[in-house]
């Protein structure tokens, strides 16, 4: 047992206790799959797909993409300067660093669904509060992730920019951003993909888009439309993933 230390066995024991405890809390029971047949019966109701409403559902899908795109892009645009303020090596001082980190933690700790519920009361139902909810959460997530990328950037170019007499913020921007840009893009496209799934959830509270249609079709037992909704969602997610990887390839 030369590969293992005694402390690792303790970690394994703790992990086992956590797994058993979580399984009890979540009623995790694989034997329930004995009624697998029911799922098969249920899924059979999804076919054949009802393609009559495809043009309308396609339009709703575009709305979902628009919500996710704006939510992610505006989130990124606002998160970028904040992330420089929230990184130890580029922040103006300790106070700015702490306040920005706290703000980002706060935004990250509130789920989009909760932001959506709060915003619905002032902005009314529709896609706009969904966009804002996704922006808020993405500022928190992207701000933290990008600030960590900034902290791990090579400090050599930053020193070179100071040495040429550039202002600190200009130097930081030019020395750091090109270094982290491919990773920033990766994070952006990942958040875009997550935002598509989030906008589906926001559809349940009136955020619009294909998520809202999925919710309506499910509640009204229109399973042949549900299958079309699910297919469109899958296509959207795969498409964003594909485009993201292609753009990243080009940038690198």
């Amino acid at each position: 047992m030369v590969w293992f230390k005694r402390s690792q066995f303790l970690i394994l024991l703790c992990l086992t206790i956590l797994v058993i405890g979580s399984m009890k809390l979540t009623e995790f029971d694989l034997s329930k799959f004995r009624d697998f047949q029911n799922m098969g019966d249920f899924l059979s109701k999804w076919f054949p797909m009802n393609t009559e409403s495809l043009p309308f559902l396609f339009q709703e899908s575009l709305l979902t993409i628009a919500i996710a795109f704006l939510g992610s892009l505006f989130g990124l645009i606002i998160a970028l300067p904040l992330s420089f303020m929230a990184a130890r090596n580029t922040s103006k001082n300790r106070f700015v660093f702490s306040v920005t980190r706290f703000l980002l933690s706060f935004l990250r700790s509130v789920p989009e669904f909760v932001f959506g519920l709060i915003l619905l009361t002032t902005l009314g139902p529709g896609p706009f509060p969904a966009v804002i909810a996704i922006i808020f959460h993405n500022i928190g997530v992207l701000g933290k992730l990008i600030s960590e990328l900034i902290e791990s950037a090579d400090k050599g170019p930053m020193e070179a920019m100071l040495a040429v007499g550039a202002k600190k913020w200009i130097g930081n921007l030019f020395a750091v951003l090109p270094q982290i840009w491919p990773n920033v893009l990766s994070q952006f496209f990942y958040r875009f993909e997550v935002a598509i799934r989030t906008s589906l959830i926001l559809g349940l509270i009136g955020g619009g888009g294909i998520g809202q249609q999925l919710f309506i079709h499910f509640k009204t037992f229109q399973y042949q439309l549900v299958s079309v909704d699910v297919l469109l969602i899958m296509i959207m997610v795969i498409m964003v993933d594909y485009i993201g990887s292609k753009i990243r390839e080009k940038v690198i």
Partner: peptide
């Protein structure tokens, strides 16, 4: 000023 590791800005 010039440096050991050149300190150029990558991707530019």
């Amino acid at each position: 000023m010039i440096f050991q590791h050149f300190n150029l800005i990558p991707r530019m």
